[in-house]
Design a protein around this nucleic acid. Structure first.
Length: 923
RNA sequence: GGGCGGUUAGCUCAGUUGGUAGAGCGCAUCCCUUACAAGGAUGAUGUCACAAGUUCGAGUCUUGUACCGCCCACCA
């Protein structure tokens, strides 16, 4: 029945309507008992504190395209949502709020109360981002939503910790680590971001100790430093052992200014004689390099900073903030005449990834995870590298393997403890009586060794990424052998941003291999002693995912990284509001070409909003033209119910496009898939097919029967087109599909088109339609060039070179008349040269508008001359190619044949243009 | 210091086994034609950064150069 919908698509209505419909009908819920093939993804869990940014939107859109495509293609799709507790970030947020609203620190509340407050905050504000993901249409299985601090996931964390602890892969040690004085916690190497900065390099005089006498003498050496305050902790100076300039210093002592401490001058290969003065101050407690030098030379380590970055162990400087201390140290040196030089110096400063505070290297007792054990049975990194290098896990794009290999081969132990309260508390208990330390999954009441109840749990929590690395299996129920775990692990695809390849991807691979295969295999097969003994079957069973697709970064229109400080952040909710979610999704997909980042521009989103509107209006056309009398539709059979050239043509094109879309998605070539479907819908379906079938639908003389057939075919074609579009634009396609008379349930579970080529590919028909299109375009071109307005109906004559084609075209005279705006059309075989009028000449046909229509033909003469010159140029290059014996000899036959055919075609066309030019004055 | 990526139409970018250079936007001309002016029709525009090499043939492969960007690295 005829339906009327508004002229302009309003995204809001559709977006509010359909997500609840999908969710309540359970379309996104994976069935653990389904016989269908599984397709599994887990979402990179966003921070509980997060609000949606463009990066999230991309990480929602691309997997959603995959999920919807696979679901429609018949897979049992599980796309699992959840959130990360985001230790430091969340604690910072709540602490800040506490300070602002109640002027309290977390210490004022105490640990238990503070953690309770964070949970309250989480319950109240935490889920925003998940609601926002629904707005984007993400087809996530919300019945399986997880949170890294859930009871189940916490159990997994403790289990992993205990096992690695018992194997010696988690250990406690006093090491040099990165410390954030603002967050007052240790950080891993990855959480320090280096920033190039124009700092200063100061040159300081250190007096030499006079042999035999106390105190400094007249002799000095000079050293250069960017962090003068660390000199308070200096315990040596160092020179390069082969630096002849300083041979005289070997074995001597210097006197540390301000502290008056006598320090040795040591030799070390690490010193670069070219830098500064060639003499280095050594601060073993606050510089990683100096730490090494100190260890080698048995130097004392003097810590001069407390956990908040205030000076300690340095006499009168004690209690000063590190930067205040720097000023005072410099002042004092200046006063004493020991500050020699101050110059600008470009160097890297390490900053806390979370809060931007300059981090300090310092010595501290922390927990570490051993990444690369010499024992192959315990080594975590080696098998993880192999799994990727040998293709058990595929990286897209594959160039990321280099990045991964580089890091995995130079991997260092991971500092996993954090001096925070929000997170998984380290499951280690110390006995106050016998000093034993045990790691246990469940809290003990008595010391296992001595029976004492004087137990104290380690106060630290684990790095957030410690729980994230378990995400692909902890979310499925591990360590329990749940149905979900057995059904859905390993997951199929991971789509994530490349900037967390080390933080997350690498660690998931390591822990997946370690916990999802290793042990069970060793238990079941005593012959397997190490990862390296595993066979392909075991590898395949334990990897966390088969494919990792690294999406690119979303930038602003100028290609700048989006950041709050630059104020160039594009808010997804704002732009989806403005252009419609589907348009923004389509933009992201269409721009997701591997390799280069996305420069998100307003123009592009406007373009795809127009596309949505085009879809809408195409549907409007279909619905308006549904016949008044009811007809029966057969969704599965109607596609080939009509047998006109146009229907055969659109089916052939649909088949070809379907193949391309499926192949592109198979290879995660989102931009290609989007582009192909866009071109098909707009420039084939709308521009031509709808126009072709228009007469059969609107002409009252068309018999009811044939109109019904045409309608059924049109509806079926449109149905298929909407299905192709659905993964990219879920809302508008659902909204329109529901109005089609063939709709059942939801388009999100309708079958995605596939394998149509065998049945519908039809080159002959495509050629016929190409000819029709050529004729129409030729006439339109003549009209435009000669300013014949669209309302002016004119006669036209089409001359076909091949008599058979005349007959092929004859049935389509009505369509030709309509599309070219003709009053009459005459088809004939023959020579156009003698006829008078405006001519458009191709190799196999010519179109003519009689001279009576237009008087002025100078323009045409110019155009034909121009065309002739261009053809001449093209022909020259083809001729020279075809006259080259080497080309003829070595190029494949098909290529030569193609060129010969091309030459023929151009020659024919040129001859006919020439004839007409020479006849010009005559007619 | 290493590694990776980019350089194609005015702008933003596609271009996967080497074989007639494409899209979107913008621009020009004409149209509110009975799905759509967020539209239609027609049209203009490129020594594919530079240089050499391989090849019958290079935007596509090799090497080098220049500029831009990203990642990693303990340079005081």
């Amino acid at each position: 029945m005829k339906r009327e919908i508004p002229k302009v698509y309003d995204p809001r209505g559709a977006e509010e309507k359909w997500y609840p419909y999908w969710e309540t009908n359970g379309y996104f819920v994976a069935d653990v008992r389904s016989p269908k093939p599984s397709y599994v993804m887990v979402i990179p869990p966003p921070n509980v504190t997060g609000t949606l940014h463009m990066g999230h939107m991309l990480v929602c859109t691309l997997p959603d395209i995959v999920a919807r495509w696979r679901r429609m293609s018949g897979d049992n799709v599980l796309w699992l949502p959840g959130m990360d507790h985001a230790g430091i970030a969340t604690q910072n947020v709540v602490e800040r709020q506490l300070m602002e609203e109640e002027h309290l620190t977390r210490h004022d509340l105490g640990r238990e109360e503070f953690v309770k407050r964070v949970w309250q905050w989480k319950e109240k504000n935490g889920g925003i981002i998940l609601k926002q993901m629904r707005r984007l249409g993400a087809s996530l299985d919300w019945t399986r939503e997880r949170f890294t601090l859930d009871e189940g996931l916490s159990r997994a964390v403790r289990e992993v910790f205990v096992r690695l602890f018992n194997e010696g892969l988690i250990y406690r040690a006093k090491r040099m680590i990165n410390w954030c004085p603002r967050c007052t916690t240790a950080l891993s190497d990855l959480e320090v971001k280096f920033e190039e900065r124009n700092g200063k390099l100061w040159t300081i005089k250190y007096p030499l100790k006079v042999p035999g006498a106390g105190g400094g003498g007249e002799e000095f050496v000079t050293v250069a430093t960017t962090r003068p305050e660390t000199m308070l902790g200096d315990t040596a100076l160092a020179i390069h052992p082969r630096d002849e300039r300083y041979f005289y210093l070997k074995g001597r002592m210097a006197v540390l200014p301000l502290m008056q401490r006598e320090i040795p001058i040591v030799e070390d290969e690490r010193v670069d004689p070219e830098f500064g003065t060639g003499i280095v101050k050594v601060t073993p407690a606050h510089d990683p390099n100096d730490f090494e030098v100190g260890m080698k030379n048995h130097l004392p380590q003097i810590s001069i900073l407390d956990e908040q970055g205030r000076i300690i162990n340095a006499g009168r400087y004690n209690g000063l903030d590190r930067f205040v201390a720097r000023k005072e140290v410099l002042e004092d040196l200046k006063t004493q005449g020991l500050l020699l030089e101050e110059k600008i110096h470009l160097h890297n400063v390490g900053k806390c990834d979370r809060c931007g505070t300059v981090v300090e290297p310092l010595i501290s007792t922390q927990w570490f995870m051993k990444m690369s054990d010499p024992d192959p049975a315990k080594n975590l990194a080696a098998p993880a590298l192999r799994a990727v290098e040998e293709g058990y896990i595929r990286f897209v794009p594959s160039s990321k393997i280099n990045v991964y290999r580089e890091w995995m081969t130079n991997i260092r132990d991971w500092c996993i403890s954090r001096q925070l309260w929000w997170g998984h508390r380290i499951p280690v208990w110390y006995c106050g009586n016998c000093n034993d330390a045990v790691a246990l999954v469940a809290e003990p009441t008595r010391c296992e060794k001595c029976g004492s109840d004087q137990l104290r749990q380690d106060p630290d929590v684990l790095d957030t990424w410690f729980s994230s690395q378990l995400w692909p299996f902890s979310t499925l129920g591990w360590p329990e052998a749940t149905e979900d775990l057995q059904k859905f692990y390993p997951t199929t695809t991971m789509i994530t941003a490349a900037d967390i390849i080390f933080f997350w991807v690498a660690r998931m691979i390591m822990s997946g291999l370690r916990f999802m295969g290793h042990e069970s295999l060793r238990a079941g097969n005593p012959d397997i002693k190490s990862y390296l003994d595993w066979g392909p079957r075991e590898w395949k069973a334990s990897i966390p995912f088969h494919t990792v697709y690294f999406n690119v970064l979303v930038r602003d229109a100028e290609g700048q990284k989006m950041s709050k400080s630059k104020k160039n952040v594009i808010d997804p909710l704002e732009v989806t509001e403005q252009y419609g979610t589907d348009a923004v999704r389509f933009t992201l997909a269409a721009m997701s070409a591997p390799g280069s980042d996305i420069a998100l521009s307003k123009e592009r989103m406007e373009g795809y909003r127009a596309f949505a509107n085009k879809i809408w209006n195409a549907a409007r056309f279909v619905l308006i033209n549904l016949p008044e009398d009811p007809i029966e539709y057969h969704p599965d059979e109607d596609l080939d119910c009509a047998n006109t050239v146009f229907d055969r043509w659109i089916r052939s094109r649909l088949a070809s496009v379907t193949d391309e879309v499926n192949r592109a998605l198979e290879e995660f070539r989102f931009h290609e898939a989007a582009h192909v479907v866009y071109q098909f819908f707009w420039h084939e379906l709308c521009d031509w097919y709808l126009e072709f079938v228009k007469p059969a639908l609107t002409d009252p003389h068309v018999p009811r029967e044939s109109r019904a057939v045409q309608t059924r075919s049109l509806v079926a074609v449109f149905d298929y087109a909407l299905r192709l579009l659905h993964p990219f634009m879920p809302f508008i396609t659902e909204e329109l599909w529901q109005q089609l008379p063939v709709a059942r349930g939801s388009i999100c579970v309708a079958r995605f088109p596939a394998n149509l080529s065998k049945r519908y590919a039809d080159q002959e028909t495509e050629k016929v339609v190409q000819l029709l299109q050529g004729v129409v375009t030729g006439i339109r071109s003549l009209r435009a060039e000669n300013e014949i307005g669209p309302s002016q109906r004119i006669p036209a004559h089409v001359y076909l070179v091949d008599a058979r084609q005349t007959e092929v075209l004859r049935p389509f005279e009505p369509q030709l008349r309509m599309l070219a705006g003709l009053e009459t059309i005459e088809l004939s075989t023959g020579d156009v040269t003698v006829a008078k009028g405006l001519k458009h000449i191709e190799a196999d046909f010519a179109v003519l508008i009689p001279a009576s229509v237009v008087g002025n033909r100078e323009k045409e003469f110019e155009r034909l001359t121009r065309e002739d010159m261009k053809l001449d140029k093209d022909l020259q290059s083809i001729k020279s190619k075809l006259s080259d014996p080497k080309f003829l000899e070595r190029a494949p036959e098909t290529v030569v044949a193609d060129w010969r055919a091309r030459e023929q075609e151009l020659q024919t066309k040129r001859r006919r243009i020439k004839e007409n030019l020479s006849a010009f004055s005559g007619n």
